[in-house]
Amino acid sequence: MNVAMILAGGVGKRMGTGEVPKQYIDIYGKPIIVHTLEVFDLHEEIDGIVVVLSQQWQTEMKTWLRQYDLNKVICLAEAGETRQASIYNGLCALDGRASEDDIVLIHDAVRPLLSRRIISENIEAAKAYGAVDTVIPSADTIIKSTDGSMLHSVPLRKELYLGQTPQSFKYGLIKAVHEKARADKIADASDDCQLVIRYGHQVKLVQGDKLNFKITIAEDLLLLKALLKLGKREEVS
């Protein structure tokens, strides 16, 4: 079984959208998270979806699942205080449903432009390697500064990649890693692959793409809307 876990616990403080977290902002008639869910819902290799979100949005989510005919969502899990806690809750929600070798694809709700290819390649690589990260090569030079004021070093660009999601794992592996992290009092890991490496497991890279960007700030939302507007055209005869 291949299960997508959609992380929707963020509050969107950097969007300037008031009370509405970014994943629930309406884009041409649908919340962003619905666009994201549809990508997984229509993918032939995805068997189920877990949505991790705060309690206060669960009623709306249930409404959207019916309204937009999203049939693969098997459960809703409550978001935690941190990303790590949210993912752990999502994994626990799969207890009894997923087996050790099932694949879990963990994806940000605010990356609605995920392609079918990336999902397929994540699943294939996760089955072979157990852990997968989606990345794109860094087009820009990355500067390291330890104080935010002065340049400390310039790492070799060809060795640098930008991390995206999904990050995909065998269920048994990622669950065990989270259990260990909790036992080791690690509570705020912002990246699951980081945790997996910490506990001695290799992570395979899958090529992402630039369109699979994360809607984090207001400019990202503008970019998404502009991209969709570009695709709209009047019919000609």
Binding site: Y28, E38, L230, G231
Partner: peptide
């Protein structure tokens, strides 16, 4: 490369 909104009408399949 462009992106489109995909919305099926009543008589359409995706």
């Amino acid at each position: 490369v462009q992106v489109d909104l995909i919305e099926a009408q009543d008589n359409e399949a995706i």
